[in-house]
Computed example of a mutant assay.
Amino acid sequence: MSYLDTTVDVYKAAALTPDVGLCCTTSPIWQLPGLSMPKIMQEMNYGCGTTVHPRDLVNSPSILYVGVGGGMELLQFSYFSRKKSGVIGVDVVDEMLAASKQNFVQAEQENDWFDQDFVELRKGDALDLPVENASIDVAAQNCLFNIFKAEELKKALEEMYRVLKPHGRLVMSDPICNQEMPAHLQEDEKLRALCLSGSIPMHEYIKMLTDVGFGTVEVRAKRPYRILSPNHYAVDQNIIIESLEVCAIKDPMPADGPCVFTGKAAIYYGQEDYLDDHKGHVLLQNQPQAVCDKTANALAELGRDDIHITPSTYFYDGGGCC
């Protein structure tokens, strides 16, 4: 049995009997006007963060969500795209698709605005999505891709890139680990299926996205998630796992490399009203400007004593200059 078969078995069981402790989401459930979230969906929230960000969801976009879980994020996405098949949910586990479909019956009873036709469920694999090229505005996955090993992860990201329209957005939430994950844990099929031992360092995670072709990456949140301690696992020291939320945008790749926003800002406090670096960046006097890491490095290399570059916060909320 492969680790992917083990994953299917784990989530088949979680579909048949909701497992509240399977994942530990680190983001609050969106409270939106007129949205009632069925209890069963909350119990089947098998994610480690959130992929629902209203700023991505204007103008009733076409949305793809891979790994449907109990349907919670599908319902949240449909709140912003109230049209037939406005949200497509793809899953390889028949039992999870059936459970999600049944949960939408309850959601329709609790929400007078919701129609089950807003969500189209499709049987399919993240490595071979049943979705047309360049047909999706926003694609998302929550705590799924970290299960994959490198080769499968690359294929899953390529598939997401393929189905997105130009400037479309891939929003993801996954566990990461900046320590070296012991090999015996990486090869533990159950731990990988439980979204623990497949965690990779943040810089590798971001590089996987940019290698596929995403020209802009936003790190929107980084929070504590789990600890693999010697008390419970065969490790010599605590292995710290964090939850990462990112948005990768299908922008053209800049000639000088991708724009990766990690929450840095530049502040110019010189004598002039503004600073123009003649590379497309204008900093107003004493006004913080969000910048990508590449631009932050370029400004620092100017060697000026009137520019302050803040450290990464890993909570980028838009408005950046690149």
Score class of each variant (00 low, 15 high):
Ser197Glu: 07
Tyr205Ser: 08
Phe214Asn: 01
Lys207His: 10
Pro201Cys: 05
His203Asn: 11
Arg192Gly: 09
Lys207Ile: 06
Ile200Arg: 01
Gly198Asn: 08
Leu170Lys: 01
Pro201Ala: 04
Ile176Asn: 01
Glu187Tyr: 11
Pro182Met: 06
Met181Asn: 08
Tyr205Ile: 07
His167Gly: 03
Lys190Arg: 13
Pro182Asp: 08
Asp174Ser: 11
Ile206Pro: 03
Pro175Thr: 15
Val171Trp: 00
His167Arg: 11
Ser173Gly: 15
Asn178Met: 01
Ala183Pro: 02
Ser197Asn: 10
Ser173Met: 01
Glu204Thr: 14
Tyr205Gln: 14
Lys165Leu: 10
Asp188Trp: 00
Leu209His: 13
Gly168Asn: 04
Lys190Leu: 15
His184Pro: 02
Leu194Lys: 14
Thr210Tyr: 04
His184Asn: 12
Met202Lys: 14
Leu194Arg: 13
Met172Cys: 10
Glu187Trp: 08
Lys190Val: 14
Val212Thr: 10
Gly215Lys: 09
Ala183Thr: 15
Glu189Leu: 07
Arg169Gly: 05
Asp174Glu: 15
Asp211Asn: 14
Lys165His: 08
Leu170Asp: 05
Ser197Pro: 04
Gly168Asp: 06
Gln186Gly: 14
Leu196Lys: 15
Leu170Glu: 03
Leu170Gln: 08
Ala193Lys: 08
Asp188Glu: 09
His184Val: 04
His184Met: 05
Thr210Asp: 01
Gln179Gly: 13
Ile206Glu: 04
Ile206Cys: 07
His203Val: 11
His203Thr: 14
Lys190Gln: 12
Glu180Thr: 15
Asp188Ala: 10
Lys207Gly: 02
Arg192Leu: 09
Ser199Gln: 05
Tyr205Asn: 09
Gly168Phe: 03
Glu204Asn: 10
Glu189Val: 14
Gly168Leu: 07
His167Trp: 08
Gly168Glu: 03
Gly168Ser: 11
Asp174Tyr: 01
Pro166Trp: 03
Pro175Tyr: 09
Met202Trp: 03
Ile176Cys: 05
Lys190Tyr: 12
Lys165Ala: 06
Pro201Tyr: 05
Ile200Gly: 02
Phe214Val: 03
Asn178Ile: 05
Ile206Gly: 06
Tyr205Pro: 06
Met208Leu: 02
Glu204Ile: 10
Lys207Cys: 06
Gly215Asp: 09
His184Ala: 11
Arg169Ile: 13
Gln179Glu: 13
Asp174Lys: 09
Val171Ile: 13
Leu185Gly: 09
Thr210Lys: 02
Cys177Pro: 02
Ser199Ala: 15
Met202Thr: 15
Ser199Leu: 00
His203Gln: 11
Asp211Thr: 11
Asp188Gly: 09
Val171Gln: 05
His184Leu: 03
Leu185His: 05
Val171Ser: 07
Ala183His: 13
Met181Gln: 06
Glu204Ser: 12
Gln186His: 08
Gln179Val: 10
Pro166Met: 01
Glu204Asp: 13
Ser197Lys: 05
